[in-house]
């Protein structure tokens, strides 16, 4: 199961926070800070996986990737395939790219509820819902049309 998805910038400011297991707000902020600290201290040219069982419990890992000024973070447990999470993140980013045509941090900031809609079409309740970015784009466009 995917436990959470976080987008934050290189200053540690959260840009999108979604936990699939409820976390009280104080705890959320604490987790974001801890994760930011971990990511900051990662050297370059190391693997994208970090064990975070101290924050989330046994066998929980996160995968992260940097795109321009943004960190993308997926937190997941041992029932997920690490390498597939990396691909899923790619799907997420590609979809945003299509929706915003060359996504940048500002797009995420000012359209954070659209980003939520995109994410909700990819992951539901911590499970992978859809992996085709064109399908996701189609669904998001339908929703925009209705709103």
């Amino acid at each position: 199961m995917i436990r959470g998805v976080i987008i934050m910038n290189d200053q540690g400011k959260p840009r999108l926070v979604k936990f699939y297991e409820f976390q009280p707000m104080e705890k959320q902020q604490e987790l974001i800070r801890s994760i930011y600290r971990i990511l900051c201290s990662r050297a370059e040219n190391v693997s994208n996986f970090v064990k975070v069982d101290s924050l989330f419990g046994p066998d929980v890992r996160l995968v992260y990737k940097t795109y321009a000024t943004l960190y993308f973070v997926f937190i997941f447990d041992s029932s997920e395939n690490e390498l597939a999470m990396l691909d899923l993140m790619q799907v997420f980013v590609e979809t945003m790219d299509k929706c915003f045509s060359n996504v940048c941090e500002l797009d995420v900031v000012f359209n954070f509820n659209k980003v939520h809609t995109i994410l909700d079409e990819i992951i539901l309740g911590g499970q992978v819902l859809e992996t085709s970015s064109s399908q996701v784009v189609k669904a998001v466009e339908e929703i925009s049309r209705l709103s």
């Binding site: 395939n81 597939a84 691909d87 790619q90 799907v91 992978v128 992996t131 085709s132 064109s134 399908q135």
Partner: peptide, 19 residues
């Protein structure tokens, strides 16, 4: 298909099946 990722046909489906 539209589900392929970098030339591999729907890796996610592969993985779910194997699981």
């Amino acid at each position: 298909s539209e589900y392929d990722v970098s030339g591999i046909t729907d890796p996610f489906l592969h993985i779910r099946l194997l699981k």
